[in-house]
């Protein structure tokens, strides 16, 4: 079994961090295992953590009355679940649900924020990595918004 530090070092979002930083981060992390159907968090709850998926799948969902749940995005191995712990008001905007038996590394957001406040170099390194991952997800979301497979103005 790999130790937490190794698991974290393997994740692309933490790629390139030195071992001191990795062990600082690992100090805020722990392993978790959830069954299919388990909510990691739900909309409106306090956002005090985030996850790295080691194995399994997680879907981000939004629930509307009558319409039920819609899946906005699915996340898999090596991907990060959750950004809301980083920014005020630290509240989840969506539901995150495991759609398969899923192994995760869970990170204590308050712990990590505290370490970033104390060590701005670590804070910068982490922010840069999270911003990059968020940008990729934002761009992908924008493409989704285009509804490119739709049938807007048919003529032929």
């Amino acid at each position: 079994m790999k130790g937490l530090e190794e698991l974290i070092a393997d994740a692309s979002v933490f790629a390139g961090l030195d071992s001191a930083s990795l062990s600082l981060i690992a100090g805020c992390a722990g392993n978790e295992h959830v069954r299919a159907g388990t909510f990691l968090f739900q909309e409106g709850e306090q956002a005090d953590r985030f996850y790295l998926i080691r194995h399994g799948a997680v879907s981000l969902e939004v629930h509307a009355p009558a319409a039920g749940s819609r899946v906005i995005e699915t996340l898999g191995e090596g991907e990060v679940v959750g950004w809301s712990w980083l920014f005020k008001p630290f509240r989840w905007q969506f539901d995150a649900r495991a759609t398969a038996p899923t192994r995760l590394v869970a990170f204590d957001g308050a712990c990590l924020r505290g370490k970033c406040d104390a060590d701005h170099e670590l804070g910068y390194q982490l922010m840069e990595r999270f911003a990059s991952a968020m940008l990729e997800r934002l761009q992908a979301t924008r493409l989704q918004l285009l509804d490119v497979y739709g049938n807007a103005r048919a003529s032929a």
């Binding site: 819609r70 995005e73 699915t74 898999g76 992908a140 989704q144």
Partner: peptide
């Protein structure tokens, strides 16, 4: 691009499959 919770496959833009 969009699915209900009964869908067990991926949800997200196709380019994300490339990265995975």
């Amino acid at each position: 691009d969009s699915a209900g919770p009964e869908w067990l496959g991926h949800v997200g833009v196709v380019t994300r499959l490339v990265r995975r």
